[in-house]
Design a protein around this nucleic acid. Structure first.
Length: 309
DNA sequence: AGCCAGGCAAGTG
DNA sequence: CACTTGCATGGC
């Protein structure tokens, strides 16, 4: 393994690895200690997390074409983001964890109302992730009427059953399954993993991606509202899941997913944003949260509301 | 036992 | 277009 460390104390804004990875926005990381994601778990502050990165055109080491998947491990300690990986992981981590985001600049565009102030105080350094598209899509198709810990468990099960394996330092890791592999899975196989009625949605969306009939490229680059509409070409994707994938994988930081928690927050803290339809309420809250980076504010509020007693 | 969890698809009016 | 219904599953 190569190793390295990124000083995160000097970033524009803080960094909180645990809050970033355990806030229910990404489901591609696992805790090395095997513990389920439990927010406010004191051990989480210095726990190792790992993911498997599917190689995409990064041909670093002289034609080793068997190394398609890389293991990346990270932990945060003493103002450093320490990593160990089967490749140089620094650029990847900066990209995936949005370490270049200028949080003070972002929050200068967001109102400093009491709720947001509390959320920022509680989870200073939480960053919106930049996940790979397909795992993010599947995760949020699975998210319907499901708790965060169980969504995470489902993605772990999918990787265990259908993901390619990588061995590093004598340990076996599972990549997230490819679209082709999930497209080839049967609905019954997916139901056995506890996906319930989401099973056919996952299979059919995987088929669309694998065949090229609908891909991220059809969405990326569109204006936000057109992109949200285009996302719904996938099966199991409505307005809310579309917003999640736009925010957490495609870089649409203005997207404000309206889930049950946020709808409660609208009723209690932003009643003037309650407009009836998803479309209109979402737009109103997006404007309430300053537009361009409204999804950042949403992610803080979601994590804060969900984890406080 | 009933209610809820990061909702969506399909059907009806 | 808006509204209703059915859908898996596990934890509290």
């Amino acid at each position: 393994m190569e190793t390295g460390s990124i000083p995160v104390a000097g970033l524009r804004g803080n960094f909180d690895l645990q809050a970033t990875l355990e806030s229910g926005q990404t489901f591609v990381w696992r805790r090395d200690d095997g513990r389920a994601y439990e927010s406010d778990d004191p051990a989480g502050g210095s726990a190792w997390y790992y993911t498997v990165v599917s190689g995409s055109g990064r041909s670093a080491n002289g034609g080793d074409d068997s190394a398609e998947n890389d293991v990346v491990r990270v932990r945060q300690r003493d103002g450093l983001l320490e990593w160990g990986a089967t490749t140089d992981a620094e650029d990847l981590l900066v990209e995936r964890l949005r370490l270049d985001d200028d949080l003070p600049e972002i929050f200068a565009t967001v109102p400093d109302d009491p709720l947001l102030a509390e959320a920022r105080e509680a989870y200073s350094g939480l960053r919106v992730v930049n996940d790979p598209f397909f795992p993010c899509l599947v995760s949020f198709v699975c998210s319907a009427q499901m708790r965060v810990e169980r969504i995470h468990g489902m993605q772990t099960a999918l990787a265990r059953e259908f993901g390619e394996t990588v061995t590093a330092d004598g340990q076996t890791y599972h990549a997230f399954p490819t679209p082709e592999r999930l497209a080839a899975a049967t609905e019954a196989e997916l139901r056995e993993l506890g996906l319930g009625y989401r099973a056919p949605y996952v299979q059919r969306s995987a088929e669309l991606v694998a065949s090229g009939e609908a891909t991220a490229a059809d969405v990326q680059g569109l204006d936000y509202e057109d992109a949200r509409e285009a996302m719904q070409a996938f099966v199991g994707v409505g307005d809310k899941v579309a917003d999640c994938v736009l925010l957490f994988a495609l870089g649409y930081l203005e997207a404000v997913p309206l889930d049950t928690w946020i709808q409660t927050a609208v009723a209690e803290h932003y009643p003037h944003c309650e407009q009836g339809s998803y479309e209109e309420t979402s737009r109103a809250l997006r404007e309430e949260f300053g537009g361009k980076f409204a999804g950042y504010a949403q992610t803080y509020v979601f994590h804060y509301l969900r984890t406080r007693g």
